[in-house]
């Protein structure tokens, strides 16, 4: 089948699976944050892979080769712009999650999600 042609999408699927496994089955808060980061990387990779065109050039006109100005000879720019937005937001949100993890460790003395249950009674 098309294992070789669709290789980036298969990598995305495996990364998503690894991230969901980390979120669902690990008990440490830091490891859960790492799982969310893996999922975010998978989504970014998926967006960039969606916009790729075989044999095309970068969507930048500065000193581009001659044939890049023809129709359908540039990679789609919109997914790249979306990915750019997503990366910066991801960094900021990761910092926020880690700050909350630090606060939880100070308050409870542990990072295990099974022990952070004071409200459950």
């Amino acid at each position: 089948m098309n294992v070789l042609t669709n290789f980036p999408f298969i990598v995305v699927a495996l990364l998503l699976a690894i991230g969901f496994y980390t979120i669902g089955f690990k008990k440490n808060l830091i490891k859960i944050v790492i799982g969310i980061e893996i999922i975010e990387g998978a989504v970014n990779l998926f967006l960039v892979a969606l916009g790729y065109v075989k044999g095309a050039y970068v969507p930048i006109y500065t000193l581009a080769p001659k044939e890049a100005a023809e129709v359908n000879k540039m990679v789609l720019p919109t997914p790249q712009a979306l990915t750019l937005t997503s990366i910066v937001i991801g960094v900021a949100v990761t910092a926020l999650m880690l700050a909350f993890a630090v606060n939880i460790y100070r308050h409870y003395g542990t990072l295990d999600v099974r022990n952070i249950r004071r409200l459950r009674g």
């Binding site: 098309n2 980036p8 999408f9 298969i10 790729y52």
Partner: peptide, 18 residues
């Protein structure tokens, strides 16, 4: 869910032809 993801990755349009 992993099986679903892998099936989707195989069945999506070919890479590099939007």
């Amino acid at each position: 869910f992993t099986f679903f993801l892998l099936t989707a990755a195989f069945e999506i349009r070919p890479f590099g032809e939007p």
